[in-house]
Nucleic acid binder design. Structure first.
Lengths: 238, 238
DNA sequence: CGTGGGGTTGATTCTTATCAATTCGGGTGG
DNA sequence: CCACCCGAATTGATAAGAATCAACCCCACG
């Protein structure tokens, strides 16, 4: 249960049994998906959020010239689509990366939760703020770092988001998807992995990524984990 | 009063007198700043948000190698720092671009507002979601568009955020700051303005920017205003 | 009058994209 | 069990886009 939505919230703060069962209602309607399946098309009415209980997924935008930019990488316990709360039409596409269990729930359900639990209201605010911080760091990544730093930074971020306990994990994105996340071509992702391997920072075999020298890698990527570590003092008590 | 924080919220939805006066409490402690003044340093304890009542400001991160990335452009009526609600230390620097009136208020004040007004709670959620959408569009901009498209897109976005009524306005960023916003060098911003001028899309004189052919510019930049136009159906009624 | 900061322009270099060919590995069908 | 096939990854050659460096202009301001 550590990776479901309850786990995500418990990682932020202590929550009561009542709040736990409220959160569980968001995961009632699980649906199973194969990899590379579109969960929600862009330009479709979007009346739901989606909790991801198992597997990986991403959101992307396809541009007029056919280019693609990936916006979010969703991991278990995360909520897909929060940023579109005020829009009737989605402008992003949600796609699975692996086999996944996805639980849609109506947007209005969120307001109900706000009504029922001030504590969860605060925590949802914290969640959306954290998402924003991740986007802000990606802007820094895209705007002002080299290809190798971008990739290194992204790998470390993913490691931390996965729980930070392991220095080896499966990165479920092809090099083309990595490129579309980091604003690079797939060819250059390949070269960049080679660059990082040659410097003894990262080993890689298929999806498997092993961080060889975490300290050097963080230094190289200018990675500061602050933006993923929130404190919850400010919130109301449960 | 249209450009203060009350105006921002009224643009989203109808709010009651009680809510208006709640919002006004956020603007009680106005402070005047000259241009290019640091309002909040990075790595300092951050216990406040800031409402901007007059003028322009931005947030930025300085990287290890001295490079800078600008994350937000704050316009009157916006709230600075929302994304850092869960952090005790700021990792961004807030700086004025023009003479400005800035109103700090303690973070805890937000929780109080959540307590007092469910309606405003929803709207604050909408505000932070909208900010997130702006960041997401900048990611697309940085990741997958040419320099000229980036600049064009940013100019249109700013026009819309300023109220969208005028095709001519003062863009209060030097070319160096524009570069640090869009991940380009200041020299290249200069060339890119020339490029857009040569194509009859934008005229410019000092800070003054005139959009000559909005339709062509939007087409060129692949600009879709959806992400700035929210709908508030989902929220609780005031 | 200087002086200094921002903007422009040209020449050159560097990073990354693009295009093309080749390899690798996993899955399929005979 | 093997031959084949396909998609992804790798590698090399070349091109494009933007950075960098340097010179110069413009002008606001003391």
């Amino acid at each position: 249960m550590d990776s479901c939505i309850v786990g995500q919230f418990q990682r932020l703060a202590n929550i009561s049994d009542k709040e736990i069962s409220l959160l569980r209602t968001l995961e009632e309607n699980a649906e199973s998906y194969q990899p590379d399946v579109i969960i929600q098309h862009e330009d479709q009415p979007s009346k739901h959020f989606y909790t991801i209980r198992k597997g990986w997924a991403y959101s992307s935008r396809i541009l007029a010239d056919g280019d693609r930019q990936i916006l979010d990488i969703f991991l278990p316990g995360h909520i897909m689509g929060l940023r579109e709360i005020g829009f009737n039409k989605s402008t992003y596409r949600f796609v699975t990366l692996t086999q996944a269990e996805i639980c849609p729930f109506p947007k209005a359900r969120l307001t109900e939760i706000f009504n029922e639990s001030p504590r969860l209201t605060d925590l949802f605010f914290l969640v959306i703020a954290r998402e924003q911080s991740i986007l802000a760091e990606r802007i820094i990544n895209l705007g002002r770092r080299s290809a190798a730093q971008k990739l290194a930074h992204f790998v470390i971020e993913t490691k931390v988001r996965l729980g930070n306990t392991i220095d080896e994990f499966d990165l479920m994105l092809s090099q083309e998807l990595l490129g579309d996340t980091l604003g690079l071509s797939s060819v250059h992702i390949s070269r960049t992995f080679k660059f990082l391997r040659d410097r003894g920072l990262i080993e890689r075999d298929g999806n498997r990524v092993k961080i060889v020298d975490l300290e050097a890698l963080m230094e190289f990527a200018d990675f500061n984990p602050c933006y993923l570590e929130q404190d919850v003092q400010w919130a109301r008590q449960g």
